[in-house]
Amino acid sequence: MFARSVTIVARPGARAASNALRARFSTQPALHNAAPAKTKTPRVLPDFSMDGKVCLITGGARGLGNEFCRAFVNSGCTNMAILDLKQTEAEDAARELVATACLNSDSKPEDFKIIGLECDVSSERSVIKAFNETMDTFGRLDSVVASAGIVENYSAFDYPFDRIKRLYDINVHGAFFTAREAARNMIPQGGGAIVLVASMSANIVNIPQPQTPYNASKAAVKHMAASLGVEWAKKGVRVNVLSPGYMLTKLTRTILEHDRELKKTWESLTPMGRMGEPNDLAGAVVFLASDASRFMTGTEIRVDGGYCII
């Protein structure tokens, strides 16, 4: 048995009709008629924007405080006071922040009003002075981050009293002075957001390094935020806590270069198996300082790679 051979002969005009039909229903436009592809503008939740807000960050010249400054600028903030222990370092940080913001962008230096101010957060008088200068410059204050803090590692028996006092003066009293002056200026204008920077150490005991006073100071900051959050809730001032885990700041990197085993220990105790990068905190601090967290107060957000879970 032989297979039949079939030959299809197109009728006159059939090929043209077929091509027209194919073109009509094709999802791909003809190349010669193709319009240039349009670039879609990413849609962003407006509540996360820091545009139009006046921000103040203590300890903003370096470390995590400086990272918070960058996060705010990247979220649209153009009015900011950077507070740090030395005036020159605060001013240098302000200039660098503006220069970086203008790099590879349409922004110009005159678009920003970022100032650097000297402030010793352990001194009530110094904090009041810095806030007064900020209000004189901007006329209002919307978001404040109390980031200035120190950590030291001594065993309980060996910790010098003057060092313990200094640590509490900066970490605890400094956070309180900062929050109080922020609220004092925010309440008359209808409210604002305060972020106190604590640590995962407010919840756990770090090992292998001994640091009891530090851990206790951060636990105090955490509960301070809860207490102030309740006290000022009906006055429009929100107070929340950001608690970082082990972060690879410039200082931490320098320390760990001489102690590789300590780095391995910290990483092995962290479920995600790594230390955090400073910019891992950017989203959390913007969330707490912006309108996106407007129904949150007295709350802690931990960014620790899961360390406190186990």
Rank of each mutant, 00 (worst) to 15 (best):
N203G: 02
N19G: 13
P208D: 06
S268F: 03
D136E: 15
E300P: 05
S243M: 07
G76W: 01
E181M: 09
T178S: 12
G76H: 03
L85S: 02
D92E: 10
D84F: 00
V285N: 00
V239C: 06
Y154S: 08
E300K: 05
V98K: 01
L167C: 14
M1R: 14
R166H: 13
I170A: 05
F68W: 08
F68V: 08
F48K: 00
V172Y: 04
N215P: 00
P29C: 03
S199F: 00
S122F: 03
A99F: 04
A233Q: 11
L85R: 01
F131S: 03
K250A: 15
Q87P: 07
F2Y: 14
R274Q: 10
P109D: 03
N185V: 00
G60D: 04
T178R: 06
Y168S: 05
L21G: 02
P213I: 11
D51M: 01
L117D: 01
P208E: 08
D142N: 07
M200C: 09
S18T: 14
A282M: 07
K235V: 05
K38C: 14
E181N: 07
A225F: 13
R62M: 14
Q28A: 12
F48I: 04
P188L: 10
S18A: 15
G59Q: 04
H32T: 12
T137C: 13
T212E: 04
L269I: 07
V98L: 02
L242M: 10
K38M: 15
K222M: 12
V286A: 13
K250M: 10
C55F: 00
F131G: 00
A16R: 11
Y307K: 12
R4C: 06
N19Q: 15
S147M: 07
L141M: 02
R260C: 04
N74M: 08
A34D: 02
E231K: 11
I255C: 06
E124H: 11
V151A: 01
R62P: 08
R166E: 08
A156Y: 12
T297D: 03
P213V: 14
F295A: 09
A282P: 07
D136I: 03
C308Q: 10
G276N: 02
V197Q: 13
G229D: 04
I114F: 08
I309Y: 11
P278C: 05
G273I: 01
F287Q: 06
G116H: 06
K53R: 11
G13V: 09
S123V: 06
D92Y: 01
D84S: 10
R62N: 10
T134W: 03
T137E: 15
D136N: 13
F177I: 01
R43Y: 07
K40I: 04
A202C: 10
A226P: 01
A94Q: 05
R62F: 11
